[in-house]
Amino acid sequence: MTTALLFPGQGSQAVGMGAALADAFASAREVFAEVDQALGQDLSGLMRDGPENQLTLTENAQPALMAVSLAVVRVLDRDFGVAVDRASFVAGHSLGEYSALAASGALALADTARLLKLRGQAMQRAVPVGRGAMASLIGPKTDLALAEAAAQAGSALGVCVVANDNNAGNIVISGDKAAVDRAIEKAKELGARAIPLNVSAPFHCPLMQPAADEMAQALSSAPITAPRLPVVANVTARPETDPETLRRLLVEQVTGRVRWRESMEWLASEGGVTRFVEVGSGKVLTGMAKRIAPGAESLALNTPDDLEAFAKEVASGE
């Protein structure tokens, strides 16, 4: 069975995330302690106890989600003998790409935590609160052509682009608030439902260029090595292994489209993936995988029981 590990993005955070792993495994506690030390912050305490409004802040949610994902990876390796390179590919949704790079050994855990903290802060600084907006276009008529048409209509009033091509029936647009509002109207005319998202900034659009500039500077000195297995990048929707290419794509990703549907389609077809395993908090990517590649097995590893069952399955050769 050919496996791809998937790493979730912002929105999958929740108070209590990682607590069961920390209670059950010393190796998970080690990951959380390393992240806390790297950030000089009791992030693990915030993850366990909240408050939710602090955990949801971009600068906290991003390293927190990575920490839970890497705790799962370390527990699988140390406690169950399932190394990350038992998989054939890794991929992460937006910030999850950093988790994928850390899991595959391209980035050190402490460096990843610091980069994500900065990424969250830089994204928040890039656009004044209230200027930007994002909206999810959903429904059976929602496809990339409809979303592009809606974004084009919004562009008459400012920046408006497709930010996340998640799967057919779930596409996110981002940009100036007035432009996104116009795009929402157009999307509804075209037969889609449109839901404004409760986000603090318009991610993955040209308004994020100041954040991309900050990340370019930070990433220029970050040690990035060749990953142990290919990383399917958001920007290209193709597997990448060259450290300098990965560095450049992390910068481009800040303003660029998350090409998740295409990434998953490549994995299922060209990559021959027959099992998608979501690693970390939540099950958002598992749901997407089932819609994009219904012929493949899809599962999420959230709890100690999930990890034990998965390890037994791997050991039996299933």
Rank of each mutant, 00 (worst) to 15 (best):
L6G: 03
P8I: 03
Q10W: 00
Q13R: 01
A14G: 02
G16K: 06
G18P: 05
G18A: 10
A19L: 12
D23Y: 00
S27G: 10
R29D: 05
V31S: 06
V35L: 01
Q37G: 15
Q37D: 15
A38N: 00
L39W: 00
Q41N: 09
Q41R: 11
S44D: 03
D49Y: 12
P51D: 09
P51Y: 09
L55F: 08
T56G: 00
L57R: 14
E59A: 09
A64D: 02
S69N: 08
L70C: 07
L70T: 03
L70G: 04
A71E: 00
V75G: 02
V75F: 07
L76M: 11
F80C: 11
A83N: 09
D85C: 12
R86M: 09
R86N: 12
A87D: 02
V90A: 15
G92V: 10
G92P: 11
S94T: 03
G96N: 02
Y98T: 11
S99F: 04
A100T: 06
A102D: 01
A103W: 10
S104L: 01
D111H: 05
R114Y: 03
L115F: 03
Q121V: 08
A122T: 05
V129F: 10
G132Y: 00
M134H: 07
L137P: 06
G139Y: 00
P140K: 13
T142M: 14
A147G: 07
A149S: 13
A153E: 13
G154L: 00
S155Q: 11
A156R: 13
L157I: 05
L157R: 15
L157Y: 13
V162T: 11
D165N: 15
A178I: 07
D181Q: 12
R182E: 15
R182F: 03
K186H: 10
K186N: 00
K188F: 02
E189Q: 15
A192Y: 01
A192W: 01
R193S: 15
P196V: 04
N198H: 13
A201Q: 07
P202T: 04
P206E: 07
P206I: 02
M208C: 09
Q209T: 13
A211M: 10
E214H: 09
Q217I: 15
A218L: 02
L219W: 04
I224C: 08
A226T: 14
L229V: 09
P230D: 12
V231F: 09
P239D: 11
T241A: 14
D242G: 08
P243W: 08
P243Q: 11
E244N: 14
R248L: 13
L249P: 11
L250T: 03
V251I: 12
E252L: 11
V254I: 15
T255N: 07
G256I: 06
R257I: 08
V258W: 05
R259P: 04
W260E: 03
R261F: 14
E262T: 04
E262N: 14
E262I: 06
S269V: 07
S269Q: 13
E270N: 06
G272Q: 07
G272V: 06
G272P: 01
V273A: 09
F276G: 02
F276L: 06
F276A: 05
V277K: 00
E278L: 01
G287N: 08
A289K: 07
K290Q: 10
A296L: 08
A296C: 10
A300G: 12
N302T: 13
D306W: 05
L307K: 11
E313I: 07
A315S: 13
